[in-house]
Design a protein around this nucleic acid. Structure first.
Length: 721
RNA sequence: GCCGGGAUGGCGGAACUGGUAGACGCGCUGGACUCAAAAUCCAGUAGUGGUGACACUGUGGGAGUUCGAUUCUCCCUCCCGGCACCA
C-alpha cells in the first residue's frame, strides 16, 4: 500500500503524504535485554529454546524492545515498559504502590492530543535487565507514555537523544549519557577558531537542557554531521554504519536483528462495535470455528439491542448468541465481534458495479466499470476510508475477484465548509448550540462591540468561533433554503463559483444574488436574440474586425473553460470566464440596454450569426453547472435535442489567430509602458520599440542600459545601472 | 505536542511553468430610466499624492536567491483540519 501510492499521480499530494505517514514504515532493530532474576515461567511465558549462538538460558526471561536508534544503544540508562506489560504485572505482585500506579495508567486517556501534553509519569519496578553489549545492569521502569499495543510494549530509554526520555530522566533523576556528538561540537572542543562564536554554542551538549540536535540522526537539519562518541568500538561511526555494526553484534549474540515496523494497525476487524457487519462464524466445542452455511446468510443483528456501556451488548443476547453447530448439531455460540463500518464503505462501490450477480460478492462485470475514474470525497476521509478501500481492493485482487490494483484513479478531496458556532452554557447542564441562521450578529448599544443574539428570545449567545459544519455544533446550513429562495441552478452556480472545491470555505451566502443576476442576464440575452428571428451561419471570410474579435474571444473562452473543467477542475474560474464573455456579448449587442443610446448594436446578418454561435457555446459550457436553465435555453436557441446530448464544442484554432500582440515594458522590473508588436517581430525590433517608448525613456534617460531581456509573447525588461 | 493545509482590497476569490498583482462576483459610490421606489442598464472602486498624464507603497511578518518573487529557499506569527506519546 505504501509502494502503490506512486501509482496514484492524480491523487492530491497531501493525501498521499498523510497515508504514507499513517502506514508509518519504520526500519530499526528489535533486540532483547536479559532480565535479572526472573524466569520465563514466572511471567507465564512458556520456555523457548534459544537460537544458535545465544547466550540466553532456556528459561531466562527476555525484555524485547524495538528501536529506530540502535546507534544510541550505548546511551541506554533505563528501560520503560507499558502498564500492561508482563514484567510490570510480575513486579506489581509484590509491590502495592506499583500496582496502584499501573491501575491509574490503565484508566488514563489514550487520545494522542491528550497524551502529547500530559505529564510523563513513571515508577521503578525494582527489576533490572542486562545491557546486551556492555553487560551493565539497567533499571526497568513502568512509564505511562509506553503503549502496549505498539511494538513490544517496551522501550530502551536513551535520555541524551530522545526528547521524551530526556524529560522523564530529568523528572526522576535518572542518568543522562551522551553518545552522539556533532562535528561542530568536536571542533569547538579542539579549540577550532572558526566555530567559537555564540551561534555555535547550540551544538554543545548540555545535560541540563534539551536541544533540537540531540534527537536528530545522521545529520542535523542544518546538515552538520553527527556520529557516535562514548561508545567504545562504535566511536566515530555515523548513523547507518553504527546501526549496521550494532545489529550485527546483537545478531551474533542471538539477541536481535534488523526489523521493519508499521504504524498501521488492523482496525477494520479489531475495533469492535455492536452495529458493525456480523462475522458469520459459529464456535462449536467439538468442531471448532465453523462458517455459517450459505443458506443461513446473512446473519442479522438484533435491532432492539441497547448498549449499556459495559462491553459488547451482543454477548448478553442469548437469543443471538446461542445456536446449533451447522456441522454436528450440538449447542454452539455465534461470534459476537463485528467488523467496523469501514469494511462496508471499503468495497460497496465494487458491488454496485456488478449488480446483476446473485451468487457472488462481485463478478467480472466489476472489472468493466472499475476502477472509479473520478472519486469525490471530503478531505476528512483522506486516511481511514480511502486507505481501507485501497486495502480491500488488494484483498479482492489477491482473491482473484477483481483485476485492478487501486480502486480510485483520480481523487478530488473537497475542502471543509466552516461556519460560526454559537452556544449557551447553563450554570449546570449541557451546553446548547444554536444554528447561525437563528442568530443575529449586530452591534450593541455602545456602538462598538459586536454581539450575537438569538432571534427567538432576543438574548445574548456566546460566540464559539468558527469550525467545521457538524450536527453536534448545530452549525450546518441546509442548501434547501437557498434552492427554495433562488432555484437549484442559482444555488449550484453560487456554490461552484465561491471557491475551488478542494479549498476550505467559510460559509456565507453574501453574493448569491450575483449568481441569480448572471442567469437573468443570460436568459435575457438569449431571448432577445431569439426574438429577432433565425440567425444565419457564420461566414468567416466576410466578418468585420469587431465580429472577428468577438469570435476570437468566444474560442479563447472555450479553450479556457475546457481546460478548467478537464484538467484543472477549477469550476470557479471557468464560470468567471463565461461571465466575462457574457459581459462582452452585452457590449457587442447592446440592444438590451434601457435607452440603448450607444451605437454598439450589431444586428447585421453576420453579427447575429456570431451571436448565435457564441450563445450556443455559452449554453453548452454552462450546462454542467446549471443544467435546467441550459436545457431550456438550448431549445430556445433552435435545437431539437437536449443540451445534455449535445457534443462538447471544439476550439476553432483559426479563430484564435491575431496579427499583433501587446507586450509589457519594464525598467528594472517595474512596469513602465505597453507596446504593440507584430506577432512575428524580431527580438531586436521589439527591443528598439520598447526603448523608444516615451515613458520608458523617462526612466532610462541619462542612465546606462546594462541589458535588455525580451521574453517572447510576454514582456521586455530594461535593466539600467 | 505531532502531521496536513492556509493567510492576497471592505468581502469571496484570480494570477496555471518566476514575467502587467487584484480577473470574475459581492458590497459600496455616482449616473441613466421612473411621479417615486424596486428591478434593469452604464461608469467608477487596493492605499497615498496629483485636475490629469503619472508616481510611490502594497500579496500575514522578517531575511535571501533573481533582471524580475503572491509564486522558489530559510526563519517567525496567526488561523483551520486530522491525530493512535509509534520508541
Amino acid at each position: 500500500m505504501l509502494g502503490d501510492l506512486a501509482k496514484l499521480p492524480d491523487w492530491p499530494e497531501r493525501v498521499r503524504t498523510m497515508q504514507a505517514n499513517w502506514i508509518g514504515k519504520s526500519v530499526g532493530v528489535r533486540f532483547a535485554f536479559r532480565v535479572n532474576g526472573v524466569t520465563r515461567s514466572a511471567l507465564g511465558s512458556p520456555p523457548s529454546p534459544s537460537g544458535r549462538g545465544s547466550e540466553v538460558e532456556d528459561d531466562e526471561a527476555l525484555l524485547w524492545v524495538f528501536t529506530t536508534r540502535a546507534d544510541t544503544i550505548m546511551g541506554v540508562t533505563f528501560c520503560a515498559v507499558a502498564a500492561e506489560h508482563p514484567l510490570a504485572t510480575h513486579a506489581a505482585r509484590s509491590n502495592v504502590k506499583l500496582a496502584a500506579f499501573i491501575d491509574e495508567c490503565k484508566h488514563g486517556s489514550v487520545m494522542e492530543a491528550d497524551m502529547a501534553t500530559m505529564e510523563k509519569k513513571g515508577m521503578p519496578t525494582g527489576l533490572s535487565v542486562v545491557h546486551p553489549l556492555t553487560g551493565e545492569p539497567i533499571p526497568v521502569w513502568v512509564g505511562n507514555y509506553v503503549l502496549m499495543s505498539y511494538g513490544e510494549g517496551a522501550v530502551m530509554a536513551v535520555p541524551a537523544h530522545d526528547e521524551r526520555d530526556f524529560y522523564f530522566a530529568k523528572q526522576y533523576g535518572l542518568p543522562i549519557k551522551q553518545v552522539i556528538t556533532s562535528a561542530i561540537e568536536e571542533r569547538r572542543k579542539k579549540g577550532d577558531a572558526d566555530v567559537q562564536g555564540d551561534g555555535y554554542a547550540v551544538f554543545d551538549f548540555d545535560p541540563a537542557q534539551w536541544k533540537e540536535w540531540y534527537g536528530e540522526k545522521g545529520k542535523t537539519t542544518t546538515s552538520v554531521s553527527l556520529y557516535c562518541i562514548n561508545s567504545g568500538k562504535y566511536n566515530d561511526l555515523e548513523y547507518s554504519a553504527a546501526v549496521d555494526a550494532i545489529a550485527a553484534d546483537l545478531n551474533a549474540k542471538g539477541l536481535g536483528e534488523k526489523k521493519t515496523m508499521w504504524r498501521l494497525r488492523d482496525w477494520g476487524i479489531s475495533r469492535q462495535r455492536y452495529w458493525g457487519c456480523p462475522i458469520p462464524i459459529i464456535h462449536c466445542a467439538h468442531c471448532g470455528d465453523v462458517p455459517v452455511p450459505d443458506k443461513d446468510l446473512p446473519v442479522v443483528l438484533p435491532e432492539d439491542c441497547v448498549p449499556d456501556g459495559s462491553g459488547n451488548p451482543l454477548n448478553k443476547r442469548a437469543d443471538f448468541v446461542n445456536c446449533k453447530c451447522p456441522k454436528c448439531g450440538a449447542n454452539a455460540q455465534r461470534e459476537t465481534d463485528t467488523m467496523d463500518t469501514f469494511v462496508d464503505s471499503s468495497w460497496y462501490y465494487a458491488r454496485f458495479a456488478s449488480g446483476r450477480s446473485a451468487s457472488a460478492m462481485v463478478d467480472r462485470e466489476t472489472d468493466y466499470w472499475m476502477p472509479v475514474d473520478q472519486y469525490i470525497g471530503g478531505i476528512e476521509h483522506a486516511i481511514l476510508h480511502l486507505l481501507y478501500s485501497r486495502f480491500w481492493s488488494k484483498v479482492m485482487r489477491d482473491l482473484k475477484l477483481v483485476s485492478y490494483d487501486e480502486p480510485f484513479k483520480r481523487l478530488l478531496t473537497q475542502g471543509m465548509v466552516l461556519n460560526h458556532i454559537f452556544f449557551r452554557k447553563p450554570a449546570n447542564g449541557r451546553i446548547q448550540y444554536f444554528n447561525p441562521a437563528d442568530v443575529e450578529v449586530k452591534i450593541d448599544n455602545t456602538g462598538i462591540q459586536i454581539v450575537a443574539i438569538l432571534k427567538s428570545d432576543g438574548q445574548l449567545v456566546e460566540d464559539g468561533g468558527i469550525g467545521t459544519m457538524s450536527k453536534s455544533k448545530n452549525n450546518g446550513i441546509d442548501p434547501q433554503q437557498l434552492i427554495e429562495l433562488h432555484g437549484a441552478d442559482t444555488a449550484r452556480l453560487f456554490v461552484m463559483f465561491a471557491a475551488p472545491p478542494e479549498q476550505t470555505l467559510e460559509w456565507s451566502d453574501a453574493g448569491v444574488e450575483g449568481a441569480a443576476r448572471f442567469l437573468k442576464r443570460l436568459w435575457k440575452l438569449v431571448h432577445t436574440h431569439v426574438g429577432m428571428g433565425t440567425a444565419a451561419r457564420v461566414e468567416v471570410a466576410v466578418l468585420n474586425d469587431a465580429q472577428r474579435a468577438m469570435r476570437r474571444m468566444l474560442h479563447e473562452t472555450l479553450a479556457k473553460v475546457t481546460d478548467d473543467y478537464a484538467r484543472r477542475r477549477t469550476f470557479n474560474t471557468a464560470i468567471a470566464s463565461v461571465m466575462e464573455l457574457i459581459n462582452a456579448l452585452y457590449k457587442f449587442d447592446d440592444s438590451h440596454r434601457v435607452g440603448s443610446t450607444r451605437g454598439g448594436d450589431d444586428h447585421s446578418t453576420q453579427g447575429r450569426a456570431v451571436l448565435q454561435e457564441a450563445l450556443d457555446n455559452v449554453v453548452i459550457m454552462l450546462a454542467p453547472i446549471v443544467p435546467h436553465i441550459s436545457h431550456a435555453l438550448w431549445q430556445a436557441l433552435g435545437h431539437d435535442n437536449a443540451v445534455i446530448d449535445a457534443r462538447w464544442p471544439s476550439v476553432d484554432a483559426a479563430a484564435l489567430t491575431r496579427s499583433s500582440i501587446e507586450l509589457v515594458v519594464q525598467v528594472n522590473g517595474k512596469l513602465r509602458g505597453h507596446i504593440e508588436v507584430a506577432l512575428d517581430a524580431k527580438p531586436a525590433d521589439i527591443e528598439a520599440q520598447a526603448l523608444a517608448d516615451a515613458n520608458v525613456q523617462r526612466f532610462t534617460a541619462g542612465k546606462q542600459i546594462k541589458k535588455v531581456i525580451v521574453v517572447p509573447g510576454k514582456l521586455v525588461n530594461v535593466v539600467v545601472a
